[in-house]
Nucleic acid binder design. Structure first.
Lengths: 336, 336
DNA sequence: ATGACGGACTTGCGCGCGCAAGCCTCGCAT
DNA sequence: ATGCGAGGCTTGCGCGCGCAAGTCCGTCAT
């Protein structure tokens, strides 16, 4: 670490410095640099200001700007403490890129309940808080009184977000999972998930969707089974299913699918003949597993772009455009 | 969405409102609420102020506070666009919790190069930017002139952070991987990674560490092999290794290990007799795979706590305590 | 010559807060 | 009676910026 840096740490350059340097008033600097409409600035002055700003390395202080204008150009995206696997990641990247080109910064944050950190929405003063999960009324009130607009799902069920129905895409994926097993001749199904407490709300929401679609197809309702990869629960479950005549497993995600398939293989069952399994998310691992996992792939990038678009509409208080669903894709491999 | 909310959206309550309500000056409100040392406030006044604040639901405006005090109590953690898998996640959670209890908010952000979003450090005005990867001089200068202190690794190599040598833990893991294979009698090793461009800097750093440790043990240098799960590269590699007498694979992470093991099984090789594989990270999947993957587990939570502690020291400009390394753990399963 | 008008700026207030410095009012020592 | 110091507040400035409302001056129609 060079020592000179600290010495150079003089006061940061403000608009006043630029003004003095360019021989104009501070307001003029603001008008030039912001291109404020309705203000006419002569070309020579404009150039002098721009030259001074560049020369001094002027960086507007966003904090002051936020205070003065009342807008921070920050969007806070609140998630439950989901594991951020790579699809969610590419979703966030897409959202971030899209919002970025409109001048907004996305801050994605996983809220871990009950660790006494100061709430992020207070420090950030975001223009908009988008939450993927319902927010307790108290916290919601706190956000609103702190000036932010909040977009959160109203139902307990899902990850629908305000007008933006993300859960549509999810339930569509489920319909494909269930439909695929049905089509392959499986009648008795179960819904399998890892006993990961952080995901339990999502799990039960999806399970409900699975039940609903099974009913539509005239199948018996698939029970929800939570498995733990640290014990024998998966192996036991597989044996039980085999005895009971269950032949199809709808997995919450590819991890759950892998666990089931692994247990089945170890139990000596034939996959997919004795037991067929469909995962969800199509993580890279799905195609490395032996046997390769059938799964559902969502175009999360497209989803992210759509989502960002909707967020931008919301920021401008424009009515939301029609939500064109992003169709999930079935990737058929060796487990069905 | 209830309609009443918008109507209720009156101006947010400020310290001035509280002052008026309590019949004191605005400064007094500040002194009471901040417990400013060196200011004596009588008990009755203090209680009146606290009561008013509570009654009105006063929330200090952090933006104004940041502007006035010059400190935002935000720490920005910059990562390359690593896939945020679950170990990194638990690391971040631990850091966040630890910083939170000291009144700081952690904002973790993956910088995706070249998407034209406004840089986050400007909007956030963080007290400290901690970067896991080296920062280009230009960006570093920009951060510093915008007032933030910056902690970034000086070497090109790794994820060492300022004085906090995270890379120590990593290379320790590698030594265990290489040492374990060596101990099991393997002499010709390769270092296998996924051809994920986002990880390439980490991959080459770790590969160098693997080479270094192999040399220490008197083994030939393990070459770096990048595999792609979307093509036949893994299967081809496995065949080649078998022909060349390579019997041990040090994998960059469990994904890479899974890919190699899967390819070996499909090629009809015996794991671990023909080919032994050690992964890294011990993701849940590692114990679900067939065969179960041997792997390295890092206590990322402990690592996170240590790290946060170091960050706090830095924030207070206290000298860093001695860095006690967090020892990685070898989890031996079926692939070695 | 007079005024209206618009271009090209400047003055100044406000955002909400932290904090230094000032101002009373007591009680108590002299 | 006077001085004095401390407790308990208030006044007021500054943080850096956006933006409304001036001010000044040259031009052009009347």
């Amino acid at each position: 670490m060079e020592a000179g840096v600290e010495a150079t740490a003089r006061r940061r350059v403000t608009a006043a410095d630029v003004a003095k340097d360019a021989g104009v008033s501070r307001a003029t600097v603001g008008y030039v640099l912001n291109g404020t409409p309705g203000q006419t600035i002569s070309q020579p002055t404009r150039e002098r200001v721009l030259a001074s700003a560049r020369r001094l390395g002027y960086q507007p202080n966003q904090t002051a700007r936020t205070l003065a204008s009342g807008r921070s150009r920050i969007v806070l995206f609140l998630m439950p403490d989901w594991p951020v696997e790579f699809r969610l990641r590419s979703f966030l990247d897409a959202v971030s890129a899209e919002l970025g080109s409109a001048g907004y910064s996305l801050v994605a944050h996983s809220h871990v309940p009950g660790h006494g950190a100061p709430p992020l929405w207070e420090s950030l003063n975001p223009d908009l808080v988008v939450s993927a999960v319902p927010i307790e009324p108290a916290a919601l009130a706190a956000m609103r009184t702190s000036g932010a607009r909040v977009l959160a799902p109203d139902t307990q069920d899902g990850i629908g977000i305000g007008g933006l129905d993300l859960s549509r895409g999810v339930s569509a994926g489920l319909e494909i999972q269930v439909g695929h097993l049905h089509e392959r001749g499986h009648r008795r199904l179960v819904y399998a998930a890892l006993s990961e407490p952080r995901l339990s709300s999502l799990v039960s929401a999806r399970h409900r969707a699975a039940v609903a679609h099974a009913r539509v197809l005239g199948l018996p309702e698939p029970p929800l089974v939570r498995l733990d990869y640290r014990d024998r629960s998966a192996v036991d479950a597989v044996h039980r299913w085999h005895a009971e005549g269950v032949t199809g497993v709808v997995a919450y995600n590819d991890d759950a699918a892998a666990l089931v398939v692994g247990a089945a293989v170890r139990a000596g069952l034939q996959v997919p003949d004795d037991l067929a399994v469909v995962g969800h998310d199509d993580v890279p691992l799905a195609s490395m597993f032996v046997p390769k996992l059938s799964s559902i792939r969502l175009d999360t990038e497209a989803l992210g772009r759509r989502f960002a678009e909707a967020v931008l509409h919301h920021l401008d208080r424009r009515p939301l455009p029609d939500w064109i669903p992003v169709r999930p894709l079935l990737v058929r491999r060796e487990t069905t």
